[in-house]
Design a protein around this nucleic acid. Structure first.
Lengths: 115, 115
DNA sequence: TTGATACTTAACCATGTGGTTAATTAATGA
DNA sequence: TCATTAATTAACCACATGGTTAAGTATCAA
């Protein structure tokens, strides 16, 4: 039985509350890339992207490492896990739609594995 | 294949970013209750709780109905589902720890069902 | 060495949030 | 009818966030 500090969840959920940051996470889910590649699709300034990355890093959702003059970013799985974990653990006491959720996730997982 | 408006997710994740609101969700997960019962455990004023409830309601996470002079609150499952759904759908493209997550969720579900 | 590239930091602004206290509305019960 | 209880709205404050532009810091390449 693992315990998580609530501060982590604060930051994780807050980080996911912004559509730009969710888009960044979605982009990184399909593979590591540089800050430049990451910001190109967005109509906002580089400093704005930089701030988003700092929040995401603070939440533990991403990691950065220098690579010459660029910087490579990648997703960090456990932080996302903890968020899912918190939500699903609420279902523990809430049986009404628990089975529906379980089936939903099972179906999705099935789909992943067969693709 | 279902599409969700991003605004919903903005509000849902933002709502879950606050520890007081997560505690409220956790309390409601174990059953419907009144606003008064809900605020009693918290060291904050009634108006503060009222604001939290408004945000939770705006995010679609809870529903309220008048019952005489009190007000009953209950959780609304689908909003939580959508949040979990967004996170897990990122995993689709991110195979590295997909199996681990699937196993984790399967184990948890098993635990629920057998309890 | 000089200039361009890839970023971050600094300073600023507008807006939203989380809290307060005080005032308001609505339902109940004496 | 009048007081009490349950909860919200109003008005305010401090602070974080999401954006900006301008300036700074490394790294690479000529």
């Amino acid at each position: 039985m693992v315990k998580y500090q609530t501060a982590d969840l604060d930051q994780t959920f807050a980080a996911l509350a912004d559509p730009t940051r969710r888009a960044i996470v979605a982009r990184l889910a399909s593979g590591e890339c540089t800050v430049g590649e990451l910001s190109r699709p967005f109509p906002i300034s580089a400093p704005a992207v930089s701030k988003h990355l700092r929040l995401l890093e603070g939440a533990g959702l991403i990691e950065r490492r220098r690579d010459g003059r660029t910087q490579r970013c990648r997703l960090n799985a456990p932080a996302l896990d903890r968020a899912v974990d918190w939500i699903t653990s609420q279902r523990r006491f809430w049986n009404e739609s628990l089975d529906r959720l379980a089936d939903h996730l099972a179906a999705q997982t099935q789909e992943e594995r067969s693709s």
